Amino acid sequence: MTASSSGPSGPSGPGAPLSAQERGVLALERRSWPGPGAKERAIREELGLSPVRYYQLLNALLDDRRALEEDPVTVNRLRRVREARRGRR
């Protein structure tokens, strides 16, 4: 893998569609959660990821134009949340 093939648009390249895993991350973010631990459990069971890796992927997706095209409502909502958190720090 070259340095130019990695980045916000992922190793597949800027023109490639989102992977099934990336779509799964966005799908999990569209859902509401009944209580603490439910989301983390779903991350492990449905995606086979640790919560830390999940949030790393999610953060990268928020900067990926393909994710914005795939699910603009979710991506824009999460971008606003991220910016609000950064503003409080």
Rank of each mutant, 00 (worst) to 15 (best):
R44D: 04
R44T: 03
P36Q: 03
R41C: 09
S5H: 06
E46V: 06
N76T: 15
A60Q: 13
R85P: 11
R77L: 08
Y54Q: 14
R66I: 03
R79N: 05
S12Q: 13
S32K: 11
V25D: 07
L78E: 10
S50W: 10
A67E: 02
M1L: 05
W33F: 06
P72T: 15
P8F: 07
W33I: 00
P34C: 00
T74Y: 05
V73Y: 04
R65E: 15
A60N: 12
R88K: 06
S5K: 04
P34I: 03
L28F: 08
V52N: 15
S19P: 05
V73G: 03
Q56C: 13
E40W: 01
A3T: 07
R89D: 09
G7M: 00
M1P: 08
E29S: 10
S5T: 11
R31Q: 11
Y55L: 06
G48N: 00
W33H: 06
A16E: 02
E29V: 10
S12D: 15
D64W: 05
K39E: 00
A38K: 02
L28R: 08
G37P: 11
R86M: 07
E46R: 07
L47K: 09
L47R: 09
R30Q: 14
S50I: 02
P11I: 06
R77C: 13
L78Q: 11
D64P: 01
A3E: 12
P34N: 06
D71V: 04
E40G: 08
R66P: 01
P36M: 07
W33M: 02
R89V: 10
S4F: 15
V25N: 08
G24P: 03
E46Q: 14
G35I: 02
L47C: 10
E83F: 14
L49M: 14
R53P: 07
R80I: 11
R66Q: 02
V73C: 04
G24E: 01
P72N: 14
R89L: 08
M1V: 02
R23N: 07
V81S: 15
A16V: 02
V81M: 14
